[in-house]
Computed example of a mutant assay.
Amino acid sequence: MTRILPGVIAMAAVVVASNILVQFLFGQWLTWGAFTYPVAFLVTDVMNRVYGVAAARRVVFIGFVVGVICSLIGTQIMGEYGPLVTWRIAIGSGLAFLSAQLLDVAIFDRLREGSWWRAPLASTLVGSSVDTAIFFTIAFAGSLTFLEPANDVSWAGEALPLLGSGPVAPLWVSLAVADWMVKLSLALIALLPFRAIVRKLSPDLA
């Protein structure tokens, strides 16, 4: 446990920071949390590369527990329009994180023997896409209103041009696409710190 403690701390910090920063808007389609949350994939991939699948999964499960705690706290804090975290958001967040991160771990492990960049890039791209799809669908899709009937998410279903200029789609789809684009961009950028951190922690693997 001691050897992966930095990864555990980093994952916990990312989860906590993202849960806080998601409350603050960045432009029309994003929150500040969109820029911190993808770092979780970097943490997972570094742990996987340096310490292996079991260690990476342990870090993921600890991050999941921290996320659940943050969500439970958020459901008890009342904001201007109700709880800071609704049950749909809590469920979507937890399922998205766990599913995407474990998928990331599995894909990374299958590709670890290839070029150094292939495993972190492929696993993060797939994991990020799954994360976005699960979270935004559960949290805001009108077809899943039964998950929390008392939570009015009709605002998320407002028909608007996609990202302000594309085909008409529910607002939550624009939010999801914007979030997904940030994740994909950061997946490419994260290759640089991934390479640097792995070289520092385990030069023979770089």
Rank of each mutant, 00 (worst) to 15 (best):
G127W: 06
N151D: 10
V130F: 03
V130Y: 02
A141W: 15
E148G: 04
I9K: 08
L5A: 05
L175A: 07
A206W: 09
D179N: 15
G79T: 01
M1D: 02
L42H: 13
L147P: 03
L175N: 07
M11F: 08
T132I: 13
D179A: 11
G142D: 06
A178G: 13
T36E: 03
S143D: 09
L186I: 10
F135Y: 15
G7Y: 09
G67R: 09
S202V: 00
T31P: 13
N19W: 11
L144F: 08
A187R: 14
G164W: 07
D131S: 08
L25E: 14
I91Y: 12
G33C: 02
R199F: 01
T31R: 15
S185Q: 11
V85G: 05
D131A: 09
A100L: 10
I62L: 14
L103N: 02
N48L: 06
Q23F: 11
A90G: 08
Y81R: 14
F61L: 09
D45H: 14
N151C: 01
F140E: 07
V130T: 03
A169F: 14
R199G: 10
V85T: 09
L121K: 06
L103Y: 00
L25A: 13
F140W: 15
N19F: 13
V105T: 01
W116Q: 05
R110M: 07
R110H: 04
W117E: 04
G63V: 07
G114N: 08
V50Q: 10
I20M: 08
R57I: 00
K200E: 07
V43G: 09
L144A: 05
A141R: 10
F194Q: 11
A17W: 08
D152F: 03
V105P: 00
I20L: 12
A178K: 08
L72C: 11
A100G: 04
T36S: 12
L160R: 14
L163T: 08
L175I: 12
D104F: 01
L147H: 01
G157L: 06
I134Y: 14
